[in-house]
């Protein structure tokens, strides 16, 4: 399979997964599980961005200004994972699906922009973004404590 086709396949699967709130509207997940699932959507969007924009290693690539969206999009994605909004999204599946689509789009922008500048950079910037989303599960919007 060519990289671009693989990228489109990953994106398609991720987009289908993004629609889950329509099916299972009463699922009330704890925030940390929610973060992890969203990290999965980000990973899908990020992989899509990498493979769809795949270019030969060592090729010249585009302007370094592609880095601006590549760095800003993950920040916006973290804000889009705003934990206190999850209660609202549990009740409004269409809003929730929109949020999912936004996350996938931001992840795509992140890695596609980075790859546009330099082949391989998408893996690093995208990896950092997914790391942030996974790490968020441990404390962004939740406090575990040790209960004594």
């Amino acid at each position: 399979m060519k990289p671009r086709a693989f990228g489109i396949l990953v994106l398609a699967v991720t987009l289908v997964a993004a629609l889950v709130p329509f099916l299972d509207r009463h699922a009330e997940l704890p925030i940390w599980q929610h973060h992890l699932l969203h990290a999965g959507l980000l990973a899908g969007g990020a992989l899509g961005g990498i493979f769809v924009t795949a270019r030969a290693r060592g090729s010249q690539g585009g302007s370094a200004f592609w880095l601006v969206p590549a760095l800003l999009a993950p920040m916006v994605a973290m804000f889009a994972m705003w934990p206190s909004a999850y209660n609202y999204f549990e009740l409004h599946p269409s809003g929730h699906v929109l949020e999912h689509l936004l996350l996938i789009a931001l992840a795509y922008i992140t890695t596609a922009s980075a790859e546009n500048y330099a082949a391989g950079l998408g893996w690093i910037v995208g990896g950092a973004m997914v790391f942030m989303a996974v790490a968020a599960a441990r404390g962004f919007g939740v406090s575990f404590g040790n209960g004594g």
Binding site: G58, G61, A64, L67, V68, A119
Partner: peptide, 17 residues
């Protein structure tokens, strides 16, 4: 931004991490 610029340029010139 500087880190990403430097790293990207290194990836371009060296052909990979």
């Amino acid at each position: 931004l500087i880190c990403a610029q430097i790293l990207g340029a290194i990836l371009r010139s060296s052909g990979g991490l």
